[in-house]
Computed example of a mutant assay.
Amino acid sequence: MTIGVLLGSGERHGQAALRWTMAGLGALDGSWTMRFPAPHGRRTIHRFPFSDQLTLPQTLQIEQAKTGLCLQSRGATMLLAAARHPTVTRVLRHPRVAEALLTLLTRAHLGNDRFAVTVCSGGARASLAGRQQTRATGLVAALTVARLPSMPPGVRHLEQLVDPVDLLTELSRHGFDLELEPDNRGGATTDSGIPL
């Protein structure tokens, strides 16, 4: 399973989110290309230390999951790649440089608030795109909470509790664009046709 996250640099994020992102820049490991919905097209993705790379192989019983990040601006995405070089990582982790960069990122909002997430698994592909990634994240949480009465007790990950196509379809009713391309090659799939 391969997941690509494209974020617009025009959306405002809190300092904690920016610090978390900056901390992950030194852990970028590998790149690939993915196709996002229009107007984004094919983009270079840089592997980013999102936790789903560790959890999804266990929860979905798949061999591997890799997740990467790119930014709306191709130039800014190229700067992400530079952050994986040890010298740049060292400079970015210097307290004064980190604080200056955090201040700049808090104040500067170039671009717009468009985002896209694309997931490819086997021959299937799903993409969700729209504006305000933080709103989409909040809606996923709210839609999940609404389903709590029908969920079993205990600690689980979201992908263990909801059908992804059902959740994404409901999310798309809130102004997001959803593209689903099923796997037509056969093989084992979830109830909604996502390959295992």
Rank of each mutant, 00 (worst) to 15 (best):
E170K: 04
E170M: 05
C120M: 08
A142V: 03
E181H: 15
V119M: 07
L56M: 12
E63M: 06
P95Q: 12
V91G: 01
Q53A: 14
E181D: 06
V119S: 02
P49N: 10
G154I: 05
P95S: 12
A81T: 15
I194Q: 11
P95F: 12
E159R: 14
T21N: 03
G154T: 04
G24V: 09
Q133P: 00
R47P: 00
V5K: 04
T44A: 12
A126R: 08
G30I: 06
I3K: 15
Q61S: 13
A23K: 12
S172F: 05
I3N: 05
T77L: 03
E170F: 01
L178K: 11
G138R: 12
A129P: 01
T87S: 14
P182C: 05
T67A: 09
G193Q: 09
S9F: 05
V119Q: 03
V97Y: 09
D113N: 14
G175C: 07
A65S: 10
R185N: 09
V165E: 02
S9C: 10
S31L: 08
M22I: 15
N112H: 13
R19K: 15
A116W: 10
F36A: 04
V162Y: 02
L101A: 14
P149G: 05
P164E: 04
M34P: 02
V91N: 04
T190F: 01
F48D: 06
R135F: 04
G123P: 00
H46W: 08
L143M: 13
L101I: 11
S172C: 03
T87P: 02
R42D: 02
R173S: 14
L54M: 09
P152A: 13
R35Q: 10
A17I: 07
Q132S: 12
M22T: 07
S150F: 08
V145R: 08
R135W: 05
T59V: 15
L105W: 14
L110T: 07
L28M: 14
